[in-house]
Design a protein around this nucleic acid. Structure first.
Length: 293
DNA sequence: TTGCAGGGGTCAA
DNA sequence: TTGACCCCTGCA
């Protein structure tokens, strides 16, 4: 059957999506935007999102999504994998100079996942002053402690805990995830969320500066985390999350001297405009993997 | 074996 | 603008 230009074939194990361009699972799942996808021995990735466990396998130009059906593909995964966006257009638009051309060619199969807002918020609070393997472990333990079980194959997985579940958890229960001082932020943000009830739609209606301002009111959320949340949950794409890596790359390759956060962001806004978020992602992936600067 | 630096920042002074 | 911060890992 056809769905929005894609030919999809449903079988007993999942859904095959034919001729998907600009889709490389390793670029998508290892570019630092998500923490709940694990590489399997066969090169496929298994992940948890939207209360489901799926396995994603690329076979040439086709993508096989296991443990799902056509309805979920249409209602969830089409949007989650941003399949409605033409990445070829984005890539040619941001590849304005040699640096960006190299970065785009390096991460050519990258896509920005439209992840769940709440999970993204807590995940990036956990990411601060932390490294990816440990971030993944903390999120895993937090989910095992406060999330709900899902079985897939012979394994048990856990959904990401709701704001209600986290705000009801005691400090001891949250502390089991070994998040250190971030555990206080998790509890504080969960409690605030139970009152504030901010959601994706809420933030989409706001201007980017206003949406950022709203997020900055949550404990543990600074400028970097706020921009990551806006970008990786698909709310705003004109943000330019600036961590130490992006800062180093921008200083060494573009600005050619030490620069403040504000300076880097205004440079990016001027150069990449509405596509700053995509540019950042190609740049970050390229810089990290090649250990640039 | 033990000690120490540093990690995709944030907060408070 | 600067240092502390919880915990884990890699490396002398």
């Amino acid at each position: 059957m056809k769905y929005r230009g894609y030919e999809i074939i449903e079988n007993s194990s999942g859904v095959l999506v034919k001729n998907v361009r600009d889709f490389d699972p390793s670029h998508i799942f290892e570019c630092g935007q998500c923490f709940r996808w694990n590489r399997e021995i066969d090169g496929s990735y298994t992940g948890i999102a939207f209360w489901r466990v799926i396995n994603v396998h690329r076979d040439g130009e086709n993508i096989l999504i296991n443990n799902t059906g056509a309805d979920d593909f249409k209602n969830i995964w089409y949007k989650y994998f941003d399949l409605g966006t033409d990445y070829s257009e984005i890539k040619s638009a941001v590849a304005k100079d040699d640096i960006m051309r190299r970065a785009v060619s390096y991460g050519c199969g990258m896509r920005i996942l439209r992840q769940e807002f709440w999970e993204t918020l807590i995940s990036f609070i956990i990411s601060s002053n932390n490294n990816i393997p440990r971030i993944m472990k903390i999120i895993e333990k937090l989910s095992a402690q406060c999330g709900e079980e899902i079985k897939y194959g012979n394994k048990t997985y856990h959904t990401f805990p709701s704001a209600a579940a986290l705000s009801n958890a005691s400090p001891e229960e949250i502390g089991i995830c070994r998040g250190g001082y971030r555990c206080g932020y998790i509890s504080g943000t969960s409690a605030k969320m139970e009152i504030a009830r901010i959601d994706k739609k809420n933030l989409e209606k706001k201007s980017t500066p206003d949406a950022r301002k709203t997020l900055l009111e949550f404990p543990g959320v600074g400028p970097k985390v706020a921009d990551c949340v806006l970008l990786y949950s698909g709310i705003k794409f004109d943000v330019f999350p600036t961590d130490v890596w992006v800062k180093r790359v921008m200083e060494s390759l573009y600005i050619h001297k030490p620069a403040s956060l504000g300076k880097i962001q205004s440079f990016a806004a001027e150069r990449f405009g509405a596509l700053a978020g995509f540019a950042q992602q190609y740049l970050f992936y390229y810089a990290r993997k090649n250990k640039l600067s």
